[in-house]
Nucleic acid binder design. Structure first.
Lengths: 245, 245
DNA sequence: GAACCGTAGTTGGTTTGACCAATGCGGTCA
DNA sequence: TGACCGCATTGGTCAAACCAACTACGGTTC
C-alpha cells in the first residue's frame, strides 16, 4: 500500500490541521479502525455514547460523523437494544440523495431523467443479451412471472417493475451503472407510481407492460442485443410519452 | 404556495412516515426550497439558528442535515460573521466527489468507470449523429483542429480531449448525462493523464487518437448514429485496454 | 412444558441552553 | 488618516435530560 492511504472523503481540505472539527476527527479514527481491520463489513460500531466517551467528544459530534457515513452509504442505523450502527456489507447507494438535490438545483425535468435512464438501460440490455447471463435471465423471468399473477395492483406491479429494471442493469455487471440507475429511478419513484395509477384501463395496461417485458426477456434469451436494446428503449419511452409534455 | 407544492420524490424510505428523522425533514425542506428557486447555487443559507427556528427543530438536528449536504459536496461552511453555509456554485462537481470517493474505497474500479463512460458517450454519439446538431459538430471540429497543432504535449492534448468528449455528450442535450459524464471524467482525470504519459511513441499515439476522433466526427456528419456509437466505444475501449488489468 | 406477555435495559432521536472561537464591521483614538 | 479594539454574528462544541424503538429475559398462564 502506498503512503497515501485512501481516506474518507475529505477532498483538499483548506482547513488548518488544528481547527479540524470534532466529527472529522471521529471520521479519521473510524477510518483507521477500518483500515487496520479492527472494524469490518457487517460489524456493529460501539454505541453513540461509547464512541463519544472513547474519542472524548460529545454525542452530537459523534452523530454528525455518523450522518456523514450514513449519507455516503457506509453504515446503516437502527434504533433499539441489540441494534445500533453497523458497517454495511454492501455499501448502499450514496447517489440517491445527491441525485435529488442535483435535479432540484438544475430544475431538471422528469423527461430528461427518463431519457437518461433509457441510455443506461438500453446499453445494459444490449450487453446482457450479448453475454447471455443465465443468472440474470433467471431473475428477470422470476420477476416477469410475478407480474403475471392475477389481481396485481399498481403498487405491487410497480415494485416488481422496479426490480426488473434494476436487475437488468445489474446484469451488465457495472456497479456504478447500477447505483446511478437505482438512484435515478428512486428519484422519480413517486411520479412513476402516480403515472401508473393515472393510466386508464389498468388490466390492459398491465398486460401490455408484461408483454413488453417479456419481449425484452425473449430478445435477451435469443442473444439479440440490438433488439433487447431497442425494446427497452421503446418500452420506457412509450410508457412515459403520454405523461410528459 | 399550494398545499401540495411540486416536489421531487424521496428515495424509497423503509421508515414509516411519522418516524422520519428531523434532519431528513430538513433535507426535504431544503430540497423544496432549491427546486422552487428560492435557493440557488452560490446563495447563502439562513444561519443554523434561523433554520432551526423556521423548521421547528433543534440546532443539532439542523447541523446533522448540513453535515449530509456537506458530505455530498453541496454546501461549503465557514464560520464567522458574514460567513455561514453556502450552496456551492458548481453542483456538478458533487458527482465527482462521490465518484472519487467510490474509487478510493474500491467500491468501484477505474475499469467500471470507463465502461460507464462508454455507455453514456456511445449513446450520446448515436443521438447527436441522428439529430445532426450542426452546432455540436462545429464545436467538435474546433477541438479536433486544435488537437492537430504540431508539438502538442500530453497535457494540452488531454484537456482538448476532455473538451471533445464533454461536448459530444453535451450535444445530446441531456444535462443529467452531461453532469454525470463530466464527473466520471474528472474522477479519473489524473489516471487518464498518467496513462497518456505512459504511452510509448507519443506522436504516433497522438496521431492515432486524432484519427479516431476524426472518425467519430465523420460518422456524425454523415448522420450514421450506429457508426458514431461504435467508433466512440472502440476509441475509449482501445485506449484503456492496455492500462487496465 | 410451552406459549404468551410485560417489563427492564440498551440504543438511537431530539431538545435545551450554554459557552467557545472565528470573522468582519464599525467606531474610537492616536 | 490609519491602526486598533470591541461587538455582533455565525459556526463548533458540550452536557444533561427525556422520548421512542427494540430485544431479551423472566414471570405468568394454560
Amino acid at each position: 500500500m502506498s503512503d497515501r492511504s485512501p481516506r474518507l472523503d475529505r477532498p483538499a481540505d483548506d482547513r488548518p490541521a488544528d481547527s479540524r472539527r470534532a466529527f472529522e476527527e471521529i471520521l479519521d479514527r473510524l477510518e483507521q479502525a477500518i483500515a487496520s481491520g479492527e472494524l469490518g463489513p457487517g460489524d456493529r460500531l460501539p454505541s453513540e455514547r461509547d464512541l463519544a466517551a472513547r474519542f472524548g467528544v460529545s454525542r452530537p459530534s459523534v452523530r454528525e460523523a455518523l450522518r456523514v457515513l450514513e449519507a455516503l452509504g457506509l453504515v446503516s442505523v437502527r434504533r433499539g437494544a441489540e441494534h445500533g450502527v453497523t458497517l454495511r456489507e454492501e455499501p448502499q447507494n450514496a447517489f440517491a440523495h445527491l441525485f435529488r438535490f442535483h435535479l432540484a438545483l438544475n430544475h431538471t425535468s422528469v423527461a430528461s431523467l427518463v431519457e437518461f435512464r433509457v441510455a443506461i438501460e438500453s446499453w445494459a440490455a444490449g450487453l446482457v443479451a450479448a453475454r447471455g447471463g443465465a443468472e440474470t435471465l433467471g431473475e428477470l423471468e422470476r420477476q416477469l412471472d410475478a407480474m403475471r399473477q392475477p389481481g396485481l395492483g399498481q403498487v405491487g406491479f410497480h415494485s416488481l417493475d422496479a426490480a426488473f429494471h434494476l436487475e437488468l442493469v445489474r446484469g451488465a455487471g457495472n456497479e456504478l451503472a447500477t447505483s446511478v440507475l437505482e438512484a435515478s429511478r428512486t428519484a422519480i419513484q413517486r411520479t412513476m407510481l402516480a403515472a401508473l395509477v393515472a393510466k386508464a384501463d389498468w388490466p390492459g395496461t398491465r398486460d401490455r407492460l408484461v408483454r413488453e417485458h417479456a419481449g425484452v426477456v425473449d430478445a435477451i434469451r435469443a442473444g439479440d442485443g440490438a433488439a433487447a436494446s431497442r425494446l427497452v428503449t421503446d418500452h420506457v419511452t412509450t410508457f412515459w410519452r403520454e405523461h410528459l409534455d
